[in-house]
């Protein structure tokens, strides 16, 4: 996340892109979501300093930024592992075995949903429908969808990700 950076560092690192995004909207408030997204791509998540930086860049009350950051589930407000595995557990996936796969992942990674492995490699999340039900059961690893999952496929995926560096986010 933004640790070790100061508010003014963050502001200056984001300023140009945020300025750019602001031109798309008639109000600066509209740029809160894109600005948080930019910050998340840069720092892997958002936190108090990010909110303050975004608020100051957009000249909006800081609480507006925090409200948005906490309403939407894709903003990571806690540190995540290098790879974020989001397994869909919604109905179409559930009907095709998502619960068993979740148990499998929990066992393999030795973490519960919402947790990060001790080595910081993986964060595991159970998520709502990913909009890829034709591939059920499906997960999203970082930005990539993987469908028609089986336990074997999961093992292969974990193995291939394990030593990869975090995906280039932007």
């Amino acid at each position: 996340m933004s640790d070790a950076r100061s508010l003014s560092d963050i502001k200056s690192e984001l300023a140009a892109q945020v300025q750019q995004v602001m031109t798309r909207y008639p109000t600066t408030r509209s740029a809160i979501m894109p600005a948080l997204d930019l910050a998340q791509q840069k720092y892997g998540g958002v936190d108090g300093l990010t909110y303050q930086a975004v608020a100051e860049l957009l000249d909006v009350p800081e609480i507006w930024v925090f409200e948005v950051a906490s309403f939407y589930s894709l903003y990571d407000r806690a540190a995540t592992g290098r790879h974020h595995i989001r397994l869909c557990t919604n109905l179409p996936c559930l009907l095709r075995g998502a619960e068993a796969l979740m148990r499998h992942l929990q066992q393999r990674l030795a973490v519960g949903p919402g947790e990060t492995t001790g080595d910081g490699r993986f964060t595991l999340s159970a998520v709502e429908c990913l909009g890829a039900c034709e591939l059920a059961p499906v997960l999203m690893a970082n930005r990539q969808y993987h469908g028609d999952l089986t336990a074997a496929k999961l093992d292969a995926l974990l193995a291939s990700l394990a030593d990869q560096p975090a995906e280039e986010m932007s």
């Binding site: 009350p61 609480i63 925090f66 409200e67």
Partner: peptide
């Protein structure tokens, strides 16, 4: 003031 807001959903 916009001091208060709502967190989460």
């Amino acid at each position: 003031d916009v001091a208060l807001g709502t967190a989460e959903r």
